[in-house]
Design a protein around this nucleic acid. Structure first.
Length: 248
DNA sequence: AGGTCTGTTCAGCT
DNA sequence: TAGCTGAACAGACC
């Protein structure tokens, strides 16, 4: 499920854990906690509290008090953050236990989430809802990759998932296969405004599935604007759906 | 029953 | 250097 709107909701959940002393950590899932060995994250965090919950795109992290390490979290494709809920094994892949008896857990059936100390998010591009016009022109409007693939590249800008990319390109009337470096400045500026609006609308309404196009994205669907049957192909390694009439 | 799928990282290739 | 592909994770859904 998680795209940027779900990541923002997870960040707000983490805020509920701020200021609560960590007394134990379940970091035994060595895949989710890679490259850390079991016990490593626990040893680094016990005695500290989280002090701030931050997000860029879909990447989450928390600062800790008294020069403790940062804790990086990622929801993967199916993860969410649950606070003060009864434990749910085996789906709670990583858990902080607090002195007050409560907890923060990364609940993730598919095990694609991630918990890591001192995360290096240096490669993560600016947040899709915040990126400036000049940064967007420079980072998106280059290279030969399909614009759909470029939007999904978290190094270029962060937070755009497969559904949000299809919704945004449909709203902006851009064909997903257009080479990103061949878009005009006007097209790039329009795409950026559309992306920011679609992202903020998705956050406000509670998810990407609240978009205009996404409900028509299924097989046999048709464009909500012109009723043309939608087309489907793999672009940037992901299933892509678009309107062959509206999107050029 | 078998195929598909909303994310990221990494190896390996061109 | 840029860009592409497939593997890995494991359950939900059609």
């Amino acid at each position: 499920m998680p795209e940027l709107p779900e990541a923002e909701r997870a960040r707000q959940q983490i805020e509920k854990a701020l200021g609560r002393e960590i007394v134990a950590v379940d970091d035994r899932d060595s895949y989710v906690c890679r490259p850390h060995a079991p016990g490593e994250i626990e040893q680094a965090l016990v005695g500290h509290s989280l002090t701030k919950a931050l997000r860029r795109g879909k990447f989450l992290w928390a600062e800790t008090d008294r020069d403790g390490p940062e804790l990086g979290l990622h929801l993967g494709m199916a993860g969410r953050i649950v606070i003060d809920e009864p434990p749910h094994t085996p789906w709670d892949r990583f858990t902080l236990h607090f002195a007050d008896g409560g907890s923060l857990a990364l609940r993730d059936k598919r095990r694609l989430g991630r918990a890591v100390l001192e995360p290096d998010y240096g490669h993560v591009g600016p947040d899709a809802a915040l990126v400036s016009r000049d940064a967007f022109r420079q980072r998106i409007g280059r290279g030969s990759m399909a614009i759909k693939a470029r939007l999904l590249d978290q190094k270029s800008i962060s937070g755009v998932g497969n559904l949000l990319a299809d919704e945004t390109l449909w709203q902006a009337r851009l064909h997903p296969r257009r080479p990103s470096g061949e878009l005009s400045e006007e097209e790039l500026d329009h795409l950026r405004r559309t992306l920011r609006a679609a992202t903020r609308a998705a956050i406000a309404k509670g998810g990407v599935h609240t978009g205009t196009f996404i409900p028509h994205r299924k097989k046999g669907g048709s464009c909500p604007r012109c009723k043309t049957a939608v087309e489907r192909a793999t672009i940037g390694g992901r299933t892509t759906v678009w309107c062959p009439t509206c999107q050029v």
